[in-house]
Design a protein around this nucleic acid. Structure first.
Lengths: 261, 261
DNA sequence: CCCTTTGGTTCCATTAAGTGAAACTTAGTC
DNA sequence: GACTAAGTTTCACTTAATGGAACCAAAGGG
């Protein structure tokens, strides 16, 4: 998808290769990667070697495939702890989840996409990582819209540029103008709804987490299904949701959380 | 800790810098990093710039600190899904956890250290990432010893070289010879115990996950406390533990799981 | 208030490293 | 056994990394 623009230097290119393997979501062969990239054979080959040496990739001798390496998992543990809202938000999410009995998501913005960093599933035990680290579109998720609505105009424009506006359901807001209208509405209301815009039957209500200086740090959402709840019912819980967001923001502040770009 | 030996090329050095930030476990200032490395100022500076541009690091303007970036979390999601045993092992861990009511860990070997990739906590809900991605010493954990005991001799020697043999408790096996003896015992027994060697009051029983071709893929463990269980009691469950390990191995095989180095 | 120190950023000639076309080596195929 | 596709290595060429030193800014101290 995103070809990361003009990458800076060798390191940038290597990381592009890493992303490419990640996006495949399965072990990939050399030739597949070669086909996707503009890199000449030898160059790509060396990058793969280097990354494998470094433990960022793993090479399967028998199959001749590359997959992401475990070193990334280790790094990510630190990244998650250092640089996501999750550790700060944990107890607030726990509380909200227990009270409302809805599925709770915590998300942040990453290069115009929604990055889920934590999750609470009221019904059954949490499936680890199945959610944290996952990315989703910004324009048709509650958390995405909640964040966009409160971001500075320039950032929103930049983010919208990056959207592909795929029509997931017939309720998806699949154009920039429609999205902008919605964002204004959200800003005045203070929170966002997702009315089956991403997945049929799935609705949610999301509130942005905003720092004292007015910057968007992330968003929290409550998700339900049309069979279990209505948007109105979720809306009734919005004050509680906003309260949670506010508490997280306050704690992030005092904890010195670095603001997102 | 581990200075990763002679890094290959620019990319390797950049990744070293990344690791350095990760190991700090908190936002770090430029000067701190400079002190730890042999890199000249300008070089380190450029690396930090590049990594920040790439979203691997995040720079906090106000504090002048660097922290790991969210791009890592995204990458790790893929890494975990592609390249750890966790997705394969999930249902087996669920079953074992439900049956035994003990805390279950799933771990793999990464550069001579134990990398926990999944966890089941019988008592309270799983704390996400608090465990997955965490690393621990190989020489004084059940999973670590279980894996070492069944690894080829050369690999074990290499791994032991990397151990620092810190004495966590008075039961820690804090020397290579003592560890080697224990490994032989474990190999003949088929599974490992951790008798409060890492943390006082914490005991565990661990079995290696071994592929059809005899290579160590990872390990599973059941953990308990001395106040709740004895080693003997855990030992009684060892057959069930080994069965779980075997099932995971079998599934990894049919699924084409790439073998660890 | 100026001078010094510390921490961070930029410059630029030097040098090392990345590059990529092409040659080569397998491993399959027909 | 010749042919093809996939992967690996080579090497002259070119670009990018290097790092000493200069520079800047802010904090501290006399």
């Amino acid at each position: 998808m995103a070809q990361e623009g003009t990458s800076d230097g060798t390191v940038g290119k290597a990381l592009d290769v890493l992303d490419m393997v990640a996006q495949a979501n399965r072990p990939v062969r050399f030739a597949e990667l070669l086909a996707q990239h503009t890199f000449p054979k030898a160059t790509l080959y060396r990058f793969l070697q280097t990354l494998t040496n470094q433990g960022m990739l793993r090479y399967d001798d028998e199959r001749g495939t590359y997959a992401l390496g475990v070193r990334l998992v280790r790094l990510a543990h630190s990244a998650w702890a250092q640089s996501s809202l999750a550790p700060i938000a944990r107890r607030h999410l726990d509380a909200l989840s227990a009270e409302t009995n809805h599925t709770i998501h915590l998300a942040q913005m990453d290069h115009g996409q929604v990055l889920y960093v934590d999750k609470r599933n009221a019904a059954q035990p949490v499936e680890m990582y199945s959610s944290a680290g996952k990315v989703g579109p910004a324009y048709c998720t509650g958390v995405g819209k909640a964040m966009l609505a409160f971001m500075p105009e320039a950032a929103v424009r930049a983010a919208i540029e990056r959207q592909s506006f795929h029509r997931f359901t017939d309720k998806t807001l699949n154009s920039a103008p429609r999205l902008m209208d919605e964002l204004h509405l959200i800003k005045s209301r203070g929170y966002a709804f997702d009315n089956e815009e991403h997945e049929p039957g799935i609705i949610c209500c999301a509130a942005p987490i905003i720092s004292g200086s007015g910057r968007v740090l992330g968003a929290v959402s409550m998700t339900s299904t049309t069979s279990r709840s209505t948007l109105d019912e979720l809306g009734k819980l919005a004050p509680r949701l906003k309260e949670t967001a506010a508490r997280i923001a306050a704690e992030a502040e005092s904890w010195g959380f670095p603001e997102q770009i």
